[in-house]
Design a protein around this nucleic acid. Sequence first.
DNA 1: GCTAGAGTGGAGTTCTGATTCCGCTTAGGT
DNA 2: ACCTAAGCGGAATCAGAACTCCACTCTAGC
Lengths: 211, 211
Amino acid sequence: MTTGAGTETKLRRDAADNHRRLLEAAVAEFSEQGMDACVEQIAARAGVGIGTFYRRFGTKDALVERLVTDLLDELVGSAERRIAAGDGDGLESYLREVATALVHHRGVLARLWSGKPAEHAERLRPLMLQLLAHAQAQGTIRPEVGGNDISVLMWSLRSIIEITGAAAGVACQRQLDFVIAGMRPGAEPLRHPALSDRARLKAEHRTPSRH
Amino acid sequence: MTTGAGTETKLRRDAADNHRRLLEAAVAEFSEQGMDACVEQIAARAGVGIGTFYRRFGTKDALVERLVTDLLDELVGSAERRIAAGDGDGLESYLREVATALVHHRGVLARLWSGKPAEHAERLRPLMLQLLAHAQAQGTIRPEVGGNDISVLMWSLRSIIEITGAAAGVACQRQLDFVIAGMRPGAEPLRHPALSDRARLKAEHRTPSRH
DNA sequence: GCTAGAGTGGAGTTCTGATTCCGCTTAGGT
DNA sequence: ACCTAAGCGGAATCAGAACTCCACTCTAGC
């Protein structure tokens, strides 16, 4: 649940403790201040000096990447669990879980769907496609819906979450109500083509704003 | 089309020219670099010195606010045009126009739905509500849909646009296909409550990240 | 064509926040 | 209890970008 990369060479007890505390402080601080939260604040909140922060993470960017990786691990785990369950509305449940996870990690969403860890995001795609295919086989999602439609849907949650802050959970679930309703077999026909794979790939490799 | 505030005390011809060029350069630079585009770059792109930039706008922030105001004027104009037209799918057409406008001004979206110009955004709301009411009276949108649902929908476009960059137009229209389909009278019932007015107001007054 | 004053350019200043450095502390093996 | 390398704190350094200032250059009214 905590991580996947194994670069942790058993720390001294106090050090391990500081490490954990830094991670918690970072999540909190990023949630509140956005990605501009400054390192000094994070360290202060964790009750350690800046030096300790840098000994542990090397760079503010490395910290963010670590948080993003944790989040992706969570999303992957969630997808796998849904696939294992094998019920008809697996995709819908999955999307709702994704929304919840994103809300919880709202501080680092700006880095989630682009930049380096895009490789990680690739890990998610086949699982998502599998859930989609299953839902379509069960007839709960109409056949014209493609994987890129689901990607766009997930992307769209980011700004809702960043704008609504505390109320993000409600806002996302309601939005999912509408989008999913629009993806059901009985819904009105689609007027526009889906995003192309080429465009999706370009989007996933874009390096966004900051630094 | 250019603006609404009338603080422009007829400039010397060359100055007016530089002013226009700065505005264009700013839109371009923000679109490409995001809100972190630096003033020096903008000035360079416009072919003027930094001094000129500051004489004209006083502050980077003032420039952004000006661009946001222009965008809102455009959105208001669009809504008024739709209301005047009075056809049944006014809301849908309006939303699609909004998407197009947002794509064009993608550089400043981060400042659009929050911060100071929230007052301006208030100008938009009654128009949007009117379009919604009309659509519901015509039976093209189901009655459970509320104004806040439309707000959330507009917010959701921001991250789609920022992530997809050049392909944003396609992505947004397709997403609108789904959401609007989900808002039709025949669509599946909604499972979750809409965002409360209180939460929406809080969201609109949030001061986001930067500065 | 001349002149006043609006406009200009861009080096220098200031501010903010990331990152480095190093002498001091402390866990934990013996 | 002692020793030593892992850890720690935080002042000092560095970097990047916003913003200021002022000697100099043109536009436009005469």
